[in-house]
Design a protein around this nucleic acid. Structure first.
Lengths: 240, 240
DNA sequence: CGTGCCAGGTGCCCT
DNA sequence: AGGGCACTTGGCACG
């Protein structure tokens, strides 16, 4: 976890440190005044301002300013960084293919350049995901309703894969769509599409649809009744 | 744009710098070995590893590792940061209400702590958004089809607000849904919901629905024909 | 403040 | 590579 930092570096020192660090697989951070231009899926420009720029060896680029969770400009991994000196200014261009897009940062003032040798990281362990909710239902199908029997997960329909396919107490096919959080109309539309596709394809007269979610908005509930679908309240985090 | 950096600081120096900097409205970055625990909308833990942590005075917290665009853990703005020293370790806890969630970072090794006084930033100027596409249609309605006349934007239905409401050459109501990029089944479902709601509410026998997008997936196109909807190819970036 | 929806969404998995 | 979808989605604008 070596750290190298240059305070108020001249452009040559900065360029060299960034180039060599990225080559070595280290993360770089640059603090200074810069303009940012993006051209790709859209186009955008950012006037001169003070920002914290982070470059990662995998091609990731992050431009952060004083506030906000999301970077004001960025590049996802997969691309390449290029450092050039033009008219005495440090330019950082990050390019990517598929989609073809680029971010160009021009620094007019460099306050600090650092490089961090960070080791590979482990994965995050998360509980409370939609998948956990699905597992909970598979282990305890009566949470959906009395007599429900799961038969298949990710069953394909022409409208997409169904979370849980099963049958109810009467043997009627049931499609279950799970959401880990409060749902709006989009989730109802998703379930409705699956049910409609299943009724066309499963050669069964009727297919029921059940939406599993901790809560539901009014508008979604209206959509739900219009499509003759059902909602069951269930939380992804198992209550003790 | 003052910058303060401490290399391999002891925990007291680090805590003081972070506390005072955040109070002063500065952005902090911490590089070191740490564990991270999140509890809120889900729960997650991250084993000890080397990371770059960024705290902003607005409550934003970002935990980055050597790769990837998204932080491995984070906190959106609105919360508060709390620095404590426990058993000689630096702990950073970030709490937020609505939703109630917290991230706790425990540093076992501090390599660098920095503070950056970044001035307020301007907004980004973007072209090629969905709104640009909508504007383009309003200025040139025949791009949708010959005889189309826009009447209203964001018109409300019980299913949600309609991008553009208008009438076709025959005076039949038309609902136009704009997407800035290639669309999948979800967009068709959205349009279908609007059309169905409009047919219930506008007291008109028929309402047509037109999806505007640069391209469309096969499955979405199938859904489209099933709902008797139409697709018109149009790009958000005005081709010269 | 909740509801609804866009976003350069990103990331993951599957075909 | 493209499709389909979850995500601690985040962010904005509106009722």
């Amino acid at each position: 976890m070596g750290v190298t930092t240059r305070s108020r570096p001249d452009v040559h020192t900065a360029a060299e440190l960034i180039d060599e660090s990225l080559d070595a697989g280290h993360v770089c951070s640059i603090v200074g005044r810069c303009t940012v231009a993006y051209d790709g899926r859209t186009q955008s420009t950012l006037p001169a301002g003070e920002r914290l720029v982070v470059c990662k060896p995998d091609g990731t680029l992050l431009v952060h300013h004083a506030a906000g969770h999301k970077p004001v400009n960025w590049q996802p991994p997969g691309g390449t960084h290029d450092i050039t000196l033009i008219d005495g200014e440090l330019h950082l261009q990050s390019r990517r293919d598929a989609p073809d897009e680029r971010v160009e940062i021009r620094f007019t003032d460099l306050r600090q350049v650092s490089a961090y040798a960070l080791e590979e990281d482990h994965d995050r362990d998360v509980t409370g995901s939609e998948d956990d909710l699905r597992q909970r239902i598979l282990e305890q199908p009566t949470l959906v309703e009395e007599g429900f029997q799961p038969r298949m997960t990710e069953r394909e329909t022409s409208a997409g894969p169904v979370d849980i396919y099963g049958v109810d107490a009467n043997g009627t096919p049931v499609i279950v769509e799970c959401k880990r959080r409060r749902v709006g109309p989009d989730a109802v539309g998703q379930l409705a599409r699956y049910v409609a596709a299943a009724e066309r394809e499963y050669t069964t007269k009727t297919v029921r649809g059940i939406l599993i979610a901790p809560s539901i908005t009014d508008r979604a509930e209206r959509e739900l009744t219009q499509h003759e679908l059902k909602w069951v309240a269930l939380d992804p985090i198992h209550s003790v």
